[in-house]
Amino acid sequence: MAKVPVQFTLNGSEKAEFIDSGTTLLNALRDKVGDTSPKGGCHQGTCGACSVIIDGELRLSCLTLAETCNGTAITTTSGLAEGGVLQPLQRAFLDTFATQCGFCTPGMIMAAKVLLDHTPNPSRDEVVEALSGNICRCTGYEPIIQAVLTAARANSQNAA
């Protein structure tokens, strides 16, 4: 089958690839671009492990065709740390034991990042709502909610 070109910005750097038409963004990122931070949990839209941010909006990369992302700016969890220094949100996940097996973590962090980008001081209910499309089989969610609230406090202290 003929390959189609796709071009987008991934975590600030330009990417261009030839892919099979109909390839999901998840497969394109993992198998072509080599960014394995989005995880394939269900490929059904149900688990949220594949969540990425496209032009500022949370999306499921398993249900998004890569070709439809031409010209967009994509953020994944692998793009957050700068020079090996974790962002406060990532740090908070470690500090509050919000990551156990870690499979859900990149998706959780994407969902939490979009929330904090728009709502720097979310309520607990807003955190629960923002993470409601992401499934975690390990933590029982409470540590994850605490991580996001902790990161929000850290951000607002830095801003003050």
Binding site: G45, A111, G133
Partner: peptide, 9 residues
């Protein structure tokens, strides 16, 4: 409808 990511799509 769905969670936040589904609603964006």
């Amino acid at each position: 409808v769905g969670g936040p990511a589904i609603r964006n799509m």
